[in-house]
């Protein structure tokens, strides 16, 4: 859940945002998806989970990995002060990413670089694809 107080304190801007959403559907779509936005990929050895979370330290994050899913929990704190414009979302967020492969929980790792979280989740060796030679008789 992300609490966005910006809508209360900056109402005229919210109208602008609706208009820009109408004229720029791509941007609108981006705003509506769960936070943080997640990309998922794989290669033969690992599952990779990328999440866009600028300005969040790895200490403010709580990542729980189970064999079935990854739970990313955290809090985004913004500096206090008199806000002239507020667009960045803040507050507590949680996202559960389902992993449809058996992964080795003990060997999983996570790093943050340039505001993007990268989790490397090694596949259990039995689920890595094996090549089977087929002979034609």
């Amino acid at each position: 859940m992300v609490i966005d107080f910006g809508s209360i304190s900056n109402l005229p801007y919210e109208f602008d945002k609706i208009f820009s959403g109408v004229f720029n559907p791509q941007q609108y779509k981006r705003r509506k998806i769960a936070y943080p936005p997640v990309n998922m990929g794989e290669d033969n050895a690992n599952i990779y989970v990328h999440a866009e979370m600028p300005g969040i330290d790895i200490d403010d994050l709580d990542i729980a990995i189970t064999p079935k899913d990854v739970v990313i929990k955290g809090e985004r704190k913004l500096p206090e002060g008199r806000y002239f414009r507020q667009e960045r979302i803040s507050g507590i967020f949680q996202r559960i990413v389902a992993i449809h492969t058996n992964i080795d929980v003990d060997k999983a790792s996570a790093t943050i670089k340039d505001g993007v979280l990268l989790m490397t989740l090694p596949k259990v060796s039995s689920t890595a694809p094996k090549k089977v030679a087929v002979e034609i008789e």
Partner: peptide
């Protein structure tokens, strides 16, 4: 993309 921006006045 229009990056989200905050402005704080001091």
């Amino acid at each position: 993309i229009d990056p989200a921006t905050d402005i704080v006045e001091t």
